[in-house]
């Protein structure tokens, strides 16, 4: 039955086009998600009650609802309101929502992780709040927050496979197409798994190296 242990590799080229789409989707979502996360983190500690409430609801829904549900809300739900984003745009919106919610939590806890004594030290040397954040708090929070943010990025690269459900031509979509043509499901999806792993495993290793490097002066 297994004539050649490496026969599944023949399907890799057919899936490459999906890798580009998955990486593009991940890249856009991570960048947008980070900025949304900053906004939500800032909003969730706002003294304006309405801002705080909105931020908290967006964060809780983004983290609480399954990604697939968010995808369907955007892709299938928005057209009811005469908004018809493309499949790719829908994936960007839904994933950014979720990534933003997770990033907001990482950003908030990273800032909280900087000891109170640091801002006290900045105050007593006369620094104002902006300088204190820019030169003292943010650089330390970034060292704490970068590794978890990168782990979110890795996770969202894997999550892009869900965008298959709304016809985004990413890796899974390409794989499914191949499988329905060849009926070699096992090999085709093995090839897909290999592609995901060949990106996530080195990236994960990179993150743990980076983590050690960043923690050096903390």
């Amino acid at each position: 039955m297994i004539t050649n242990l490496l026969s599944w590799t023949q399907y890799l080229p057919a899936l490459f086009s999906g890798v580009g789409v998955a990486l593009a989707l991940t890249g856009i979502v991570i960048v947008l998600g980070f900025f949304l996360g900053l906004l939500l983190a800032y909003g969730s500690v706002s003294k304006v009650r309405l801002v705080k409430a909105v931020a908290l609801v967006v964060v809780e829904v983004g983290r609480g609802a399954p990604l697939l549900v968010l995808l369907y809300i955007v892709y299938q739900g928005l057209p009811q309101f005469q908004l018809t984003p493309t499949a790719f745009a829908s994936a960007v919106i839904a994933f950014t929502w979720s990534a933003g919610a997770y990033s907001a939590e990482v950003i908030r806890t990273s800032i909280d992780a900087v000891p109170n004594g640091q801002s006290e030290a900045a105050i007593v040397v006369g620094m104002n709040r902006v300088d204190s954040f820019r030169f003292i708090i943010a650089p330390q929070a970034i060292r704490v927050g970068i590794p978890p943010l990168m782990n979110i990025a890795i996770q969202f690269f894997q999550f892009t496979s869900l965008a298959y459900a709304i016809t985004v031509p990413e890796i899974m979509q390409a794989a499914y197409f191949q499988a329905t043509v060849t009926f070699d499901y096992f090999s085709v999806f093995l090839a897909a798994a290999f592609l995901y792993a060949s990106i996530t495993i080195p990236t994960t290793m990179l993150v743990s190296r980076l983590e050690r490097h960043l923690a050096k002066h903390l």
């Binding site: 004594g117 030290a121 007593v124 006369g126 620094m127 300088d131 030169f135 060292r143 002066h217």
Partner: peptide
């Protein structure tokens, strides 16, 4: 007009000793 030294030092861990001392001179 007031300098302060803390029990737990509270140096800025991401800056060298020299930058710890220089930063506020520049900014303030």
């Amino acid at each position: 007009s007031v300098g302060m030294v803390f029990q737990s030092f509270n140096l800025f861990p991401h800056l060298t000793a020299l930058r710890n001392i220089s930063l506020a001179q520049e900014r303030v």
